[in-house]
């Protein structure tokens, strides 16, 4: 489908949704609107709120805090995941010993850790970073582990026949393979970094998008809740676009998925 037509259709969905929302919450049918604006707000109110936040500049601080938390969570979680993934993949004994514990830790709903992290790291950004790290770490860890394990045996045999030492194998074979798996999960891990930050803020904080939404909820300020969700959604999309750009640059050597299918 042509790009222009696709964009037009995508915009149409947004337009229909907003118009319906507007009509249902503002046009009175038999005295009052079909959908109570107290619980659902109106597009106009939400837009006014978003405008106010940006006009007055209060939103930037919250955005910055959430971005910082998500970025730190991503960097620390990825680094940990890469290191441990590599270590486990190259040392099968270690992997076997820790296997049940890794599974237990991963099965744990991270949200129950949030209060503990708050106790340990306080109400500042550190507790949110810690929550994000627990989410990002496992995604990256599993992918890197898989990436190192699933290097094509032919490529490996070829590398050996070319005379590669253990260190050269690491650099030229295992490392690129692991990285490619890590990058293929980039969207998921970046998304989870943001989720960790926002959920952490929501459960107890003094700033950030999650805090903003929680505050609005506490005062039945539905327009504020929706405005917060809208800003969060746009924030995530912008990050996702950036990730796609990074991915295109880093994974040029990989065939597009469409190429693989006849």
């Amino acid at each position: 489908m042509p790009r222009l037509k696709l964009t037009a259709l995508q915009l149409l969905v947004a337009l229909v949704t907003i118009v319906l929302w507007h009509l249902l919450t503002t046009i009175p049918v038999g005295g009052k609107p079909l959908v109570p604006p107290f619980f659902f707000s109106t597009p106009g109110d939400v837009a006014a709120r978003v405008y106010k936040w940006f006009y007055e500049g209060t939103i930037w601080r919250h955005l910055w805090i959430t971005l910082t938390e998500a970025t730190l969570a991503f960097i620390i979680g990825s680094a940990g995941g890469v290191l441990v993934g590599f270590w486990f993949a190259r040392q099968p004994l270690v992997a076997d010993v820790f296997d049940p514990y890794v599974k237990m830790a991963n099965a744990l709903p991270r949200i129950v850790l949030a209060p503990i992290f708050t106790l340990w790291f306080g109400l500042g950004i550190l507790s949110k970073v810690a929550l994000g790290v627990t989410l990002v770490f496992f995604i990256v860890f599993f992918n890197v582990y898989q990436g190192v394990k699933e290097v094509s045996p032919t490529v490996l045999a070829n590398a050996r026949m070319l005379g590669m030492s253990e260190r050269q194998l690491m650099r030229h074979v295992y490392w690129p393979s692991a990285l490619s798996w890590m990058f293929s999960s980039l969207h998921t891990s970046v998304g989870f970094a943001v989720v960790g930050a926002v959920v952490g803020e929501y459960l107890g904080s003094a700033a950030g998008l999650g805090y903003l939404i929680l505050q609005a909820e506490g005062t039945f300020d539905i327009a504020g809740v929706f405005a917060g969700m809208f800003v969060l959604a746009v924030f995530v999309i912008v990050i996702d676009i950036l990730v796609t750009m990074v991915e295109r640059r880093l994974l040029v050597w990989r065939p597009l998925a469409a190429d693989a299918r006849p």
Binding site: S152, T154, V155, A157, N158, A159, R160, M161, G163, H172, V173, P176, S177, S180, W253, R254
Partner: peptide, 20 residues
Amino acid sequence: GLNRQAGYLFQSDALFPWKT
């Protein structure tokens, strides 16, 4: 151990896909 004097051309793809 490995035959260091030999070059080996494999049947299936053995190039490093991440290298030009």
